[in-house]
Design a protein around this nucleic acid. Structure first.
Length: 474
DNA sequence: TGAAATGTTGGGGCG
DNA sequence: ACGCCCCAACATTTC
């Protein structure tokens, strides 16, 4: 019998390893709840809740296919290989299928599992599934990993445009003959993770069909304007499928197919919106390749070693103000409150708040990275780390240290009428379009605002950041 | 996937 | 008509 091991690929449709498992014989599915590891990795409560809700749906779908879903608990990460072996023994399993994961602990876990299973003559088949391109398949002429996105991207497109197989999806698994193994009950919650608001659960409904619906709506209604609308947080211009892609409710191949349908099967597309969106999918590829090729970044190290010596400020109050949307900069505070309330933040805003945190506050980007992981429902180690190191100028191909966003200018540019700010900062909603971006500058006589003063001076903090980076330059 | 400082140009007000 | 100043608009450089 076969075991299919679910990890961050919580779907049945177009699931590579599940496809091969079910094709090659009777299959039992497994999911392991590793609460302590999730806590150590700062996985957000809303993300874990999303996984649990999806597992409940999956169980129903799996039951319809006569694939029982086993749920196991493991608080010691290193014991996972033994847990898998035990499952194999209990159910007479001789092949274990799963899809590859790329962070360092996961790689070690899979290596150890493979070794242990091998000793017991059990096959371990770890499939490429999560990305368009297998990690390590995109390298330069000297067989090194690309460190620059544009070069990486160029190679990706050359392959994507000339090889059909990147678009091919796997058929839905066939119903198995009944086996007398009962699915386990999926827990509703896990000790150690706080409760999740009904608002977040409502906003992020589970199910593969929900994921398809969102993808189709984006492709039908918004991708054509993606390039012009994606930077405006008040406009619903982005795909908002990261949550589904990250937990694996959608496959990357489904995304590619959907994008191509929009362009009459032509790629590269004449539609600039489609191309821009594909670029974003490739950023996801790029950062995962970086994480795999340069594993020190997943140990919280700056990509550029010399940047270990930056003197980040140690300012608990500033950290707290940033985390809770109390910095006195409306665009920052609105964004941070959106994150807490919804588990999600618009990409443009992620850049603005991360830049503000690492440059104007000159706080250690790892603290910001951690806060994002603790609250993002789509939190992905590779993309989150890559994004933070980009903003903090510590990453490969990141923004030059002197190219610092001005949060007020960004606010005026990308939320010109303050529509987004007004949603999340009702205490400022009455201000006019000019004052909404910098309330205290246009304060009317005797007017009092229930809103904090700016916690830093933009001009001074900008020079401070530039000086801190120059101080460590050789 | 910048922003600020500095430099240049040219139109218009004005004595 | 002319020189002078102001300053907006744009260009370049600096961080």
């Amino acid at each position: 019998m076969n075991l299919y091991w679910f990890r961050t690929d919580l779907r049945i449709t177009d699931n590579t390893a599940l496809h091969y498992a079910t094709q090659n014989g009777q299959t039992v599915a497994l999911f392991i709840i590793t609460a302590k590891q999730w806590l150590r990795h700062d996985d957000a409560a809303c993300k874990i809740d999303f996984w649990l809700r999806q597992l409940q749906q999956l169980r129903q779908q799996l039951d319809a296919l006569n694939i029982p879903l086993l749920i196991r608990y493991c608080d010691v990460w290193e014991e996972i290989p033994h847990l898998i072996l035990e499952c194999c023994k209990n159910y007479a399993i001789d092949r274990v299928y799963c899809n590859q994961e790329y962070a360092i602990n996961e790689l070690k876990r899979d290596q150890d599992t493979q070794q242990l299973l091998q000793q017991h003559q059990i096959e371990f088949l770890n499939h490429h599934d999560r990305l368009i391109f297998p990690v390590g398949s995109i390298k330069n002429k000297s067989t090194e990993y690309y460190k620059v996105f544009s070069a990486f991207k160029q190679v990706c497109y050359e392959r994507l445009y000339h090889q059909e197989h990147y678009f091919q999806t796997y058929p839905y698994p066939q119903k198995q003959t009944y086996i007398n193994i009962k699915s386990d009950v999926t827990p509703n919650s896990i000790v150690g993770f706080g409760t999740v608001s009904p608002q977040i659960q409502q906003q992020w409904q589970v199910g593969e069909e929900q994921a398809w619906l969102r993808l189709d709506q984006f492709i039908d209604e918004r991708i054509n304007q993606y390039q012009s609308n994606r930077d405006y947080p008040a406009i619903d211009g982005t795909s908002q499928i990261s949550t589904y892609l990250n937990a694996g409710l959608l496959s990357i191949r489904q995304c590619l197919q959907a994008a191509r349908i929009n362009t009459d099967g032509m790629l590269p597309s004449h539609n600039i919106g489609v191309n821009t969106w594909l670029d974003e999918l490739l950023w996801r590829e790029f950062y995962t390749h970086i994480l795999y090729g340069f594993p020190h970044v997943s140990r919280n190290q700056p990509f550029k070693a010399e940047l270990k010596n930056i003197q980040w400020r140690d300012a608990t109050e500033d950290l707290h103000a940033w985390q809770h949307g109390l910095t006195g900069f409306p665009i920052i505070d609105a964004a941070m409150r959106q994150l807490l309330a919804t588990g999600w933040m618009h990409n443009r805003l992620r850049m603005i708040v991360a830049m503000f945190f690492s440059k104007n506050l000159l706080m250690d980007w790892r603290l910001g990275e951690q806060w994002f992981m603790q609250h993002l429902i789509d939190g992905d180690l590779a993309a989150n780390n890559g994004g933070w190191q980009w903003c903090a100028s510590t990453g490969t191909d990141s923004v030059p240290y002197f190219r610092i966003f001005n949060p007020i200018t960004q606010s005026q540019k990308f939320d010109p009428e303050g529509q987004f700010i007004r949603i999340w900062l009702p205490e400022l909603a009455h201000l006019d379009n000019k004052a909404i971006h910098e309330p205290y500058k246009y304060l009317k006589h005797n007017e009092i605002l229930d809103y904090p003063q700016p916690i830093v001076d933009l001009k001074q903090s900008r020079s401070r950041a530039i000086a801190a980076f120059q101080a460590i330059k050789v």
